[in-house]
Design a protein around this nucleic acid. Structure first.
Lengths: 182, 182
DNA sequence: CCTCACATGTAATGAGTTACATGATTGG
DNA sequence: CCAATCATGTAACTCATTACATGTGAGG
């Protein structure tokens, strides 16, 4: 999938600026598909505007820079549908974290711990994000499946990692912040 | 992560040719990290040979083309360790399959079904591959964690998808082949 | 006879990232 | 005062993919 298709997909739900698209891909409702940087999003929008797949509404904001709100056009919806039908049929689980885990005996123990904890942090974060998303959702939408799938997979990853912690020679995770004595 | 690091990692376990590396990345023990094509593997090996990170032993095989067995050198092991320490600390779940699922109402129902079944096929395949890998493993190796993690995650994905099948308006999966009545 | 598995490699192309470039406003 | 957030965009660069190029042997 390319950034154009990603942007069209986001715009199919609601109009958005390049900046907003980036945020949605980074953190928000559209963070589960592919990554995209400003350097790819802005050119994609410019190009799609030239191709008539999106239209733009410029909003002057007092005290803020010009904001360009892009909307998808009918041609854009057709292009999106088309792209959707041409996406590869399978998508594979790949993980660079696992690559690092594979060589755990070759890296410094403290680095291994940092990597492990970094991944854990991401997974717990992801889980909260999904929970949040779930609440602002009409039931039955495509987002429900996405979030359910994400929840199932991330939970399983967390569980397996917590179980493996000791066998990897790692300590239990340190308390996140100063928590009162118990 | 780049293809160079991937190749070094594979060679750290055993010597291999470009062809064998490709196979291992496609199907085998190293299929869980990143993808790599011949067009990236061969140049990577050539370059690393020039850089002294690997050495080569040419094997003339009767009736078969020349085979180049690459081995990692001491410099290569250092470079690998170095790369390992520079890899990003978090790796995110991304799925284009989910993107398609998000727009399930915009695509043809038969296409949706094909995509869903295609993904299912991949997941079941993956699970068998992992089971196979598990058997040819010394316990306690890095591979054990990789396979355990993979198993946990893939199983969770399968379970969620099977549960969601009906709510997506899809039929139960058709029997894979002629199976005897039971 | 034809296709698949084995085996190595190159060149054109493409798609994206990173870093650069600019600038206002808000909050600590 | 400094950092972060909002906001848009370009150019150099990197990295990998695709398609091309070549050749043998085995099995159906």
């Amino acid at each position: 999938m390319n950034v154009r298709t990603l942007c069209l997909g986001i715009l199919a739900f609601d109009e958005a600026s390049g900046y907003e698209i980036k945020k949605a891909v980074e953190d928000g409702m559209f963070s589960h598909f592919i990554e995209a940087s400003y350097g790819s999003i802005y050119p994609a929008l410019t190009q799609m505007l030239a191709d008539g797949l999106v239209s733009v509404r410029e909003q002057a904001q007092e005290g803020k820079p010009l904001k360009k709100a892009y909307s998808i056009t009918e041609a854009g919806r057709k292009a999106l549908k088309n792209s959707l039908h041409e996406l590869p049929q399978q998508d594979k689980f790949k993980s660079e974290f696992l690559f690092q885990a594979l060589f755990r005996e070759q890296v410094d123990p403290q680095h291994l711990e940092a990597v492990f904890n970094g991944q854990m942090e991401y997974l717990y974060d992801e889980l909260s994000t999904i929970e949040e998303c779930r609440q602002s959702l009409e039931p039955g939408s495509g987002h429900a499946f996405v979030n359910g799938y994400g929840h199932a997979v991330v939970s399983a990853a967390i569980q397996y990692m917590e179980e493996s912690r000791s066998s990897l020679g790692l300590l239990a995770r340190k308390p996140i912040s100063s928590d009162a004595a118990e």
